[in-house]
Design a protein around this nucleic acid. Structure first.
Length: 516
RNA sequence: GGCGCUAUCGUCUAGGGGUUAGGACGUGAGAUUCUCAAUCUUAAAACACGGGUUCGAUUCCCGUUAGCGCUACCA
């Protein structure tokens, strides 16, 4: 089966996260590049859950992980199903915890062929070896002591019930492999320790070790058995790769192509972590970032368009443009500002209805339940959101910006530092008196043109214009000296009043502030 | 300590033996708008250092330095 897949030329890649936490920026970018490569090449994208670390793995994280991948639009062809505990694909199981029986036959084979051996060394002995190597400025690699054990010695150890681990014999020639991103990589044999394949356990006198296989062994066997042709992953795995290559070769399997992606760092050049703020996909989603902005931004971390200029790509455009050859080698710093810019870009393009429904929950308590809201309320809310979107980087900032629509505190408006300055101007009181007169003389809701008319008359009567005119009025009406233009704002306020959303009318606002 | 990866504006990057070293974010200035945001125009801003190779290196090679990763019977 493996051979047939390899020979068919179908490209198969995998994303193999362990469900020990949320999907963060680095892993999301790895998933994205795998996905892009698979889609671009017409290959298969496999999701494999590496949940062998039972202590840290949680099914809740697996669920969240799947949610986040779906949110980003990185759909997989094989792997755990999105909505049920089942799996899709012919190369399963796709959860590593269900695969633990698959490795022992290969271990037995390696042992039988003399490509692996039993290592009876104790942790203490190994520690001692390492310590000595460090003292002598040598690479800290295993001495290979147990390689030389005679059959007789092994038998005796087994008979005495000594525990042993299984180690691979690293061949004594340099290990080379090709990395699509970095070119040919080569590691000298004497810098690579014989890797443990299977952890120590009390073995029987026959058969393979009953111990638990280690990560490097497991991924290699899994990748091979799943017919993975291209391993695209973080560059923290470069040092693991020669060991894995040796495993492929010992088992007589074709070595896949590798592509090691550079690390994503925080602004302080440290590895990106929670310390730097939001880094998980779910937190970005909660903050109201759009998935297409996230995908686009992530794609630019370690990759660039061929023309050297294009920055914005839809997912489809990315699939068309993406090549591993253009992936960059140096580490990239995650720039929240540029992500924000990207999100603003996509918010401008998004239909207001979509943004409004994403925002609804941010306005908890101020609006009816979305399901119970009338069409008129929905439309009104679309407009409110549309009014504030240009002034925010992500959707969850909107409620604070829009708060004055729902309620206004005249005392706060008066005492706010910057407001106080504007109100202290000599003309401010005149302007406000004039405004009060107009409001007094007006019955019913105020239209945008009513208000524009007032403005013109106040301008003449008070003999002021510009900030001196508009600042006091804006403060009287909204409690702040900055915000959306009156022409759009006034109708929205009066409509909101009519919809019984409990928001103060133009007249009520002015009354509270200046007494009408 | 050992092994490895990396090095172009503050950041993401394009480029590549001879270029005014290009674009984007951010920043400054200007325009527009009642304000803020948005928008438009515009400016400043980079080839880490030292040796080679070469007529010529930012580009190729070597070294230094710095950053990062790995160095587990973790994944």
């Amino acid at each position: 089966m493996i051979e047939s897949v390899m020979e068919s030329g179908t490209i198969r890649v995998r994303f193999a996260p362990s469900p020990t936490g949320l999907l963060h920026v680095g892993n999301a970018r790895t998933a994205l590049f795998n996905w892009l490569f698979a889609r671009r090449m017409g290959g298969k994208f496999v999701l494999r859950i590496e949940d062998t670390d039972l202590e840290r793995s949680k099914s809740a994280y697996e669920k969240k992980l799947i949610e986040d991948l779906v949110w980003l639009g990185l759909t997989w062809d094989e792997g755990p199903n999105e909505n049920d505990p089942g799996e899709t694909g012919d190369f399963g199981p796709y959860r590593q915890s269900k695969r633990i029986d698959l490795y022992s036959s290969h271990t037995a084979q390696l042992l039988a062929e003399g490509k692996a051996y039993r290592c009876f060394c104790s942790p203490e002995e190994l520690d001692e070896e390492r310590r000595r190597a460090a003292d002598e400025h040598r690479p800290q690699i295993y001495s290979g002591k147990c390689r030389k054990l005679s059959k007789q010695e092994i038998k005796e150890n087994l008979l005495r019930g000594k525990t042993y681990a299984v180690r691979l014999k690293i061949p004594d020639h340099p290990i080379k492999f090709h990395d699509i991103v970095r070119g040919d990589l080569e590691f000298a044999a004497d810098t690579i320790s014989d890797p443990i394949l299977v952890r120590s356990a009390k073995g029987g006198t026959a058969g393979a070790s009953p111990g638990v296989p280690v990560y490097n062994y497991v991924v290699t066997v899994d990748d091979a058995l799943m017919g993975i042709t291209h391993v695209i992953r973080g560059d923290d795995h470069i040092s693991n790769t020669p060991k894995q290559v040796a495993i492929y070769e010992a088992l007589g399997w074709k070595v896949p192509e590798f592509a090691h992606l550079s690390t994503i760092l925080g602004p302080d050049h440290e590895r990106l972590s929670k310390r730097h703020g939001a880094t998980s996909m779910s937190s970005f989603r909660e903050m109201g970032y759009l998935p297409e902005a996230m995908v686009n931004y992530l794609s630019l971390l370690g990759w660039g368009a061929e023309d050297g200029k294009t920055e914005t790509f839809t997912a489809a455009e990315l699939v068309k443009a993406f090549t591993l050859q253009r992936v960059t080698t140096s580490p990239a710093i995650f720039d929240f500002e540029k992500l924000n810019w990207m999100n603003r870009h996509y918010m401008k393009e998004a239909p207001p209805g979509r943004l409004a429904s994403l925002c609804w929950d941010y306005f908890g308590g101020l609006l009816p339940e979305k399901e119970e809201a009338s069409d008129a309320v929905l439309v009104w809310f679309f407009h409110v959101i549309g009014l504030f979107v240009p002034s925010v980087s992500h959707l969850d900032e909107i409620p604070a910006k829009a708060a004055f629509i729902f309620h206004m505190d005249p005392n706060l408006a008066r005492t706010d530092q910057e407001n106080a300055e504007a109100l202290a101007a000599g003309s401010a009181q005149t302007v406000l008196n004039e405004l009060a007169n107009h409001a007094r003389a007006h019955a019913g809701p105020v239209s945008a043109s009513d208000f524009a008319g007032w403005m013109n008359q106040i301008k003449e009567a008070a003999g002021v214009e510009g900030n001196e005119l508009f600042h006091p009025i804006r403060i009287a009406l909204t409690g702040t000296h900055s915000g959306p233009e009156f022409e759009k704002l006034i109708p929205l306020i009066e409509q909101g009043v009519e919809l019984n959303l409990g928001i103060p009318s133009v007249r009520e606002r002015l009354d509270a502030f200046i007494g009408v």
